[in-house]
Design a binder for these strands. Structure first.
Lengths: 344, 344
DNA sequence: CAAAAGTGAGAAAACCTTTTCTCACTTGAC
DNA sequence: GTCAAGTGAGAAAAGGTTTTCTCACTTTTG
């Protein structure tokens, strides 16, 4: 039996500060003050209480504490990203940043269902969460639930927020620029951008940055977020007459993988003949591609970390400037561009 | 401003049962009893209290309620599956099963770090979780944290549990049998099993079931859980002399994908010449393979759902038989075996 | 030596809800 | 007209913790 559970008449009972007080021969208030380094008392008393508390394995009941302090040391993470591709790194960052502060995270997957979203938000509020982080799978879409005017702070991460809120997002233009500059550094001249559907905001951002960095004459091909579109795009390019590109910048890793596979099937060598860069750094796709993909990482874990620290600051009443914060991307160099350093 | 927040001197205050009582002109106790359909009172009074509570948007404070009832309506999900491939479906099932009961889920990713695991477990216990579900990425490994003798019930899902605990897992032998029988039904005779490392328990289970169903003479090839092993296995088989298989049963979808790609590159048609079945039904891999993979789904969401309901039952003191429960798998038919029904 | 200042520790209220107990009043029966 | 039973609703305690207030006692100061 664990030492910090009292067995009384067969029923387990958690040990409370009453037990500590009794064991140390002091009052409850003294025990509390000793443990929290509050109030006035002799050093000997304080140490004795602490020692006794440690010995009998006392851990304060967070419910009781929260009731009084109006802080539950709990936040909610709301997401509509069922597959978890974006939410998982964000969640990891949030959790990592907050565990040091004793904050736990409720994960609520609401799957684009407004009713389910409402239920989860109400459940979180009932449980007195200190704040909510809303995250999703798309920068330019709202979660299907109204988070304005909640009694707790809300921070948006990788999803569209309200105008006066704090929103963290990736700087897709930066990511695209990184990719193009890398390709140029290794000597590539004719770059094609194969990307996703036009109605994604991030598609525009990346495409605009691409045009600016690569030159407005370089072609942009819009399609869908799948491997097969990568295949098809290659088929289209190589069925056209004229000079072929020596580099591809793809809108995500799946498209890039499709393109790489299609090139290989045509006998075109990656990276010797054509360099390819993806986007997302989705390990399972990027690392398993032959050759493994050089790709743009949106640093979602860092994004989650910052969102976590921000919601904590807001919960503690510290002032936070509202607005959109764009986080820089990072180029992850693997083998699909040729070598791990720019050619001279 | 939302109706359920009172603005007092600039500070937001959540509304409590005191406000309901005052607004309805009754005492706190009467208000509580009215809302919980407890105690005795006139129908008119009860209805009036309920109406008033609804109007001013009262929601009971779960912390206060939990303090009294010793139920927090909160459970913890502990996982070491950083990538979330297995945890995400489990989590979805748990959440889906418990949201109806007003239970929220703390997600704690501990990444095989015992210290981190300890921290998370203690944080959960402090927050008085009603129970813990432990889940992982491997059936035959323990989480790096001791969950025995906790003051709350623990249920294991897709991870090795203690002998006297309740454990839910997939029936891998059943899944393998399903795969082989399907291949036999569509007329395949010579099946090869290409699977993962020998030290995985589920690899043995699947391989044994494979041998039993396909015949002990059919070859089993052990390797790693990657696409490249799928490639290599195909290279090995086709470099050997003798009759080639007309079907492959792969240990996971990544191996299957690698195998399918390798076959295509050799000009061998899937499914016309060789049928391929994967394992895991990992959408992102299975659905993007050309052709999309027929594969075995371990029904992890259902597994999560049952784990959730079980931990709830234990939390409520209902008796649950300890032991290992194996959940049947399901064959997801796509196009890598040929057609969507057995050949005659 | 008396008053003031300082020190150690406990009592009680507060957080919000639920539940048991008690009380006053009404109704029905004899 | 009295007593018992029934009805409606409030008082109070409990749950575990923190914090403020108070009190008794000791030390310092003039």
């Amino acid at each position: 039996m664990r030492e910090d559970i009292l067995e009384i008449g067969g029923a387990k009972r958690r040990i409370t500060i009453h037990d500590v007080a009794a064991a140390a021969g002091v009052s409850i208030s003294t025990a509390s003050k000793a443990l929290n380094n509050n109030g006035r008392m002799g050093d000997e008393t304080r140490e004795r209480v602490k020692r006794v508390a440690m010995e009998i394995g006392f851990r304060p009941n967070a419910l009781a504490r929260g009731l009084l302090s109006k802080r539950s040391f709990t936040i909610g993470l709301l997401t509509n990203d069922t597959y978890g591709r974006f939410t998982l790194p964000v969640m990891a960052g949030v959790s990592e940043a907050l565990v040091d502060h004793g904050v736990s995270v409720f994960l609520c997957a609401i799957e684009d269902d407004p009713a389910l979203g409402q239920i989860h938000v109400e459940a979180m509020l009932d449980k007195q969460v200190d704040g909510i982080i809303a995250t999703g799978k798309r920068l330019d879409r709202r979660l299907p639930v109204d988070l304005s005017n909640l009694p707790v702070p809300v921070v948006y991460a990788f999803t569209e927020g309200t105008p006066d809120s704090v929103t963290f997002r990736s700087d897709d233009a930066h990511g695209a620029t990184l990719a193009v500059q890398w390709l140029q550094q290794i000597g590539r001249q004719r770059i094609v951008h194969i990307t996703g559907p036009r109605d994604f905001f991030s598609v525009h951002e990346r495409a605009d940055a691409f045009s600016q960095a690569a030159g407005v004459a370089e072609p942009v091909m819009y399609g869908v977020w799948s491997e097969s579109w990568g295949h098809e795009a290659i088929a289209q390019i190589w069925s056209r007459s004229g000079e072929k590109p020596d580099a591809l910048f793809c809108g995500n890793d799946q498209i890039a993988r499709g393109a790489v596979d299609a090139l290989r099937e045509r006998g075109i060598k990656v990276p010797e003949d054509v360099s390819v860069i993806g986007f997302d750094n989705w390990e399972i796709v990027a690392a398993q591609t032959r050759p493994p993909l050089t790709t743009v990482d949106m640093e979602l874990k860092e994004l989650g970390r910052q969102a976590g620290l921000t919601v904590l600051a807001l919960a503690e009443g510290r002032p936070v400037e509202p607005g959109v914060r764009k986080l820089p991307c990072r180029l992850v160099v693997r083998q699909s561009c040729g070598g791990d350093s720019p050619r001279k």
